[in-house]
Design a protein around this nucleic acid. Structure first.
Lengths: 346, 346
DNA sequence: GTGAAAGCGCTAACAA
DNA sequence: TTGTTAGCGCTTTCAC
């Protein structure tokens, strides 16, 4: 049906001028038709649209950018694309962005603050807003970016900047209670990166909860927030006396489980493991991972919508958005081994 | 150290005019300094750069876009961000893009050809090139896009468009040989989406290899290319006589393993399972997945570099880039069960 | 080697 | 409601 072989050149895309000429109006009218609908007579608008589709005209965000300083793009920086939580977060964010007519620029900062800063600087002039997920940058660096563009941070609490975080406090407490109720008295927290905000929050909550429940709670780490990091942690763990361990994230938790098994320990008979993030890999490993679960896609979508609100002039209302976390008991946790637990609870 | 609290406004970014004034030269000279280095006296250049860093000036791709029709961005469309192969591919692609000073716009097309077309149309005017990974669009739709922008397709063979694919033929053949050598005579191929090119390629290679080795090879499916899809397939499989199954991808293969186990079959004692893609989840599941492995990050990087070459005027040389695939034997495959195999091989 | 001036495609006053 | 006229920030002839 199409005319074909008109030439090897991709025939320069039609502009508002072409459309204007075809429709017999001024270019500015064409511009208004697309940029500010309603400000133009519906009859002319119709004629213009007809001409536009006829010629195959499409608005060109990058062309309107210099004039309006709107690029229609949002940058999302994630710490590690290989971590499945980011796939979820991103899906939520992308759907929300598309729905609002925005595009999403995804960058993987590879768990490195310096890389992250570099990427952020490169990307900031291109976008209208920045979503930082699990950022490893310093608070100061984040505030610096927030000075240039609206910013929402995900998985991190930070004053003066809009945040979306899970209820780490409550989620972690539930994990500790869960282990306590099963009779575990010696717990360990396997730490992720020091630069990770949730890592700090979880460790603090873990520590507090242990204290209140009169449990022993130590910390080991930091380890890489990856399967390999967890596997490595398991070595340290297998020499320790803890019978219940809480692990920074799901990837690590799976590594811990496999590492423990490798070392000849049974999960959960000898050691119970609880992780964070309800992702597929945790359901697939044997035993299936007991985990603290948060609605990742929803978090991504919420964060992006809040960012868009800021972009469109809303004022951040200070308080962070906290989404609920709940414990998903599965098979990696169970009663404390009788031989190792000193007392049974109550 | 910084001046602070200069106001709530994000203080408009400096332009070449600001730099020009500060350096006592014309704006065009500043422009040249950054856009066409060498065309300007090294002394003046130095002075200009100094002023630029002083003011914190940064080139703004979107501002140079209207004048040069260069946006400095590449779009990467992936069929499903939740599939871990895409995290790998993307990492390779992003590193390659950053190295060349390009940004990557990632979009998740959610396994849907219509969604994918829509996204592609929206994104095309913004970018200089498009990388399509595991595209579900029709060949015609892809060629349509290729008419407007340089395109490289990943995981798909297609004439007239640059492609990067794994050696599906050889990889699949190795999987079948592996099962044949272990004494399996009745094989099954668990199919993924019809719109997936690797799915077709793998099924054809599977079928051919079975024929040549005098094995029985049936096909079941299509199923969703997800864990759930594989789990569902396992139900169909548990009623069949196949003792060796080749599964479209790793996610599905893991689903198949778990589904089979759920149905009371042992892997690999009763049924051997071989998948595609060497990703973490396949190593974590018990038994660890025997799989056909391809260098995903390298593929992503290669595809992106080839795309950049096209963007910079290179002519596509027709033939697809084929990267090697090899079999990673692990624990999900083993000797055929004696009771069920009619004959032993040799 | 550098400056002046004219655009790139589009939007935004300002008149008409 | 629509056309005219300046720009947005940058690049690029074309002279000097």
């Amino acid at each position: 049906m199409d005319s074909e072989g008109s030439g090897p050149q991709p025939t320069r895309a039609p502009t508002i001028y072409d459309v204007a000429e075809a429709a017999g109006v001024a270019p500015s009218t064409v511009s208004r038709t697309f940029a500010r609908p309603g400000r133009v007579n519906s009859r002319t608008a119709e004629r213009i649209r007809a001409a536009a589709t006829e010629l195959g005209y499409r608005t060109t965000p990058v062309a309107q950018a210099p004039a309006t300083s709107r690029t229609g793009m949002i940058a999302v920086l994630v710490s590690d694309l290989a971590n499945p939580i980011h796939a979820e977060l991103l899906r939520g964010a992308q759907v929300a962005a598309s729905a609002a007519g925005y595009g999403v620029l995804v960058e993987d900062t590879r768990e490195d603050a310096v890389t992250e800063r570099g990427i952020a600087e490169r990307i900031v002039p291109l976008v209208e807003g920045v979503l930082l997920s699990s950022s490893r940058m310093s608070d100061a660096a984040i505030r610096g970016i927030a000075k240039q563009r609206p910013v929402v941070v995900l998985n991190r609490g930070l004053t003066d900047v809009a945040c979306v975080v899970a209820d780490e406090e409550r989620g972690t407490r539930r994990a500790v209670e869960h282990l306590g109720e099963a009779g575990h008295r010696d717990l360990a927290y396997v730490a992720g990166p020091d630069a990770s905000w949730p890592n700090g929050a979880r460790w603090r909550a873990f520590s507090d909860a242990c204290h209140e429940l009169s449990l022993t709670g130590r910390r080991i780490g930091p380890f890489d927030p990856t399967f390999a990091g967890g596997f490595e942690a398991a070595l340290a763990l297998s020499g320790a006396r803890a019978t219940g361990v809480v692990v920074f994230n799901a990837l690590m938790a799976v590594g811990v489980i496999r590492g423990l098994q490798q070392a000849g320990l049974r999960v959960p008979e000898d050691v119970s493991v609880v992780g964070f993030d309800d992702v597929l890999i945790g359901q697939v490993v044997s035993p299936a991972l007991t985990t603290v679960s948060t609605p990742l896609q929803a978090m991504g979508a919420t964060a992006l919508r809040n960012l868009l609100a800021l972009v469109n002039g809303a004022r951040s209302h200070g308080r962070p958005v906290v989404v609920p976390a709940r414990l998903m008991p599965r098979d990696s946790s169970g009663p404390a081994p009788v031989a190792r637990s000193v007392t049974r609870v109550q």
